[in-house]
């Protein structure tokens, strides 16, 4: 039989699966309930109820064995929403059990590489978003930004922007996931969101956007034009919500 573990879509749910499936030799896959595809005859579905205590035990154990950075790494892998992330994490945890802290030196091991690669991809998108999130000043002085990242990023960027714009109210809207981080001036929540704050941009807002674009144009050294380098630094897929590229394509 091929056992398929299904969890509720939370990190704690995924870790509960790892906990329950630890000794299961027939485990085939760990899936979030939204990803659950049709089941064939050989597959045996196990629905796992999230158990925060089991999940916390794993998190604590990882911290003790390998430290905070590995904890963060596994969490980032979860946030990539990669279809195989469940099994990657389980296999990494088993390796950690076997090798202890040394697991981090096994850089050419497939399981270690998968984890490192996905977490690095996630981290670099996070870093890019720190710079590429673009707020517009909407009605009532609320800062509103739209993003469509490859990975789930709200949880990791919200604390950063809460610190940076702690004297403002802001919303960062992930259009790809219909979720938003909403900050009320003292704390943020992450919630489902279908709003749109950009119905009528104020004239002040538009004039600052224009100033930004003209400024970037003025800053360009024409003798050094290098669009390939620009494309490498600002990949096309990231340009959709960048004021300077968005408005240009509108005109």
């Amino acid at each position: 039989m091929l056992n398929i573990y299904i969890y509720d879509g939370t990190y704690h749910g995924l870790l509960t699966c790892c906990f329950d499936a630890w000794k299961d030799k027939d485990i085939y896959s760990i899936r979030s309930k939204e990803e659950n595809k049709s089941v064939n005859l050989l597959e045996n579905v196990v629905y796992v109820e999230t158990d925060n205590e089991k999940a916390e035990r794993i998190i604590k154990w990882v911290g003790k064995e390998a430290g905070y950075e590995v904890q963060r790494k596994l969490y980032r892998v979860f946030l990539t929403e990669h279809p195989d992330r469940g099994m990657y994490i389980l296999r990494y945890l088993k390796l950690l059990d076997k090798l202890g802290r040394n697991v981090e030196n096994h850089l050419y091991d497939d399981d270690v590489r998968n984890i490192n690669k996905l977490s690095r991809m996630h981290a670099s998108e996070t870093h890019r978003l720190y710079g590429f999130v673009r707020f517009e000043v909407a009605g009532n002085n609320i800062l509103y930004a739209r993003i469509e990242p490859d990975f789930n990023q709200l949880e990791v960027i919200a604390p950063y922007f809460a610190d940076r714009y702690n004297s403002h109210l802001w919303i960062i809207h992930d259009l790809a996931r219909n979720m938003a981080a909403i900050f009320n001036g003292s704390e943020y929540i992450i919630t489902e969101y279908h709003g749109n704050m950009l119905d009528n941009e104020s004239r002040t807002e538009i004039s600052f956007q224009k100033m930004w674009i003209e400024y970037l144009n003025a800053l360009t050294i024409k003798e050094r034009l290098n669009l390939d380098l620009q494309k490498q630094k600002v990949p096309l897929k990231t340009r959709k919500h960048l004021t300077e590229f968005k408005l240009k394509s509108k005109n």
Partner: peptide, 13 residues
């Protein structure tokens, strides 16, 4: 943190 890149590929922070 880099915030944008001009057409000459230079970073704007």
């Amino acid at each position: 943190i880099c915030h944008s890149f001009t057409p000459d590929g230079r970073c704007v922070s």
